[in-house]
């Protein structure tokens, strides 16, 4: 089963502590070594982004930053795992690192299953 981990938090000016980045790098290495993490990346500031929205039959483009948003997506990763529990466990470990290395930081990791061939077979 493939999962997308979507990490959200308030947009901050300061960079994350080096200890956190090191710990995350170690966790990513471990996940790569375990053959579970198959892709991922960090996202730039919303100031460099834009939103393209369809509403009321009208497509509008709004340039960043998205100052009204409480939390924005900061990064994502794709995992191939056996179960949702395994995905949740991986996300818990990721958040524990934040707890340890970035006091005061708040945010969430959303764990979402991606569709695989077995889901297509079911709907067919």
């Amino acid at each position: 089963m493939r999962f997308m981990m979507i990490v959200k938090s308030a947009e901050r000016s300061g960079p994350p502590p080096k200890a956190l980045m090191d710990a995350i790098a170690k966790l990513s290495d471990d996940a790569a070594q375990a053959g579970t993490m198959i892709g991922g990346g960090g996202l730039g500031p919303t100031a460099l982004g834009a939103r393209v929205r369809l509403s009321g039959g009208k497509v509008t483009v709004t340039d960043g930053p998205f100052s009204e948003a409480k939390e924005v997506v900061g990064g994502y990763a794709q995992f191939e795992l056996k179960s949702k529990e395994e995905a949740v466990e991986s996300a818990v470990r990721f958040m524990e690192l934040h707890k340890k290395h970035w006091p005061g930081w708040e945010g969430e990791t959303e764990v979402r299953q991606m569709f695989g061939p077995e889901d297509f077979a079911k709907t067919a």
Binding site: A34, L81, K82, S83, E85, E86, V88, E89, S90
Partner: peptide, 10 residues
């Protein structure tokens, strides 16, 4: 128990 299963798998 389900969390333990996951930990075990990892």
């Amino acid at each position: 128990h389900r969390a333990i299963d996951a930990v075990w798998r990892i």
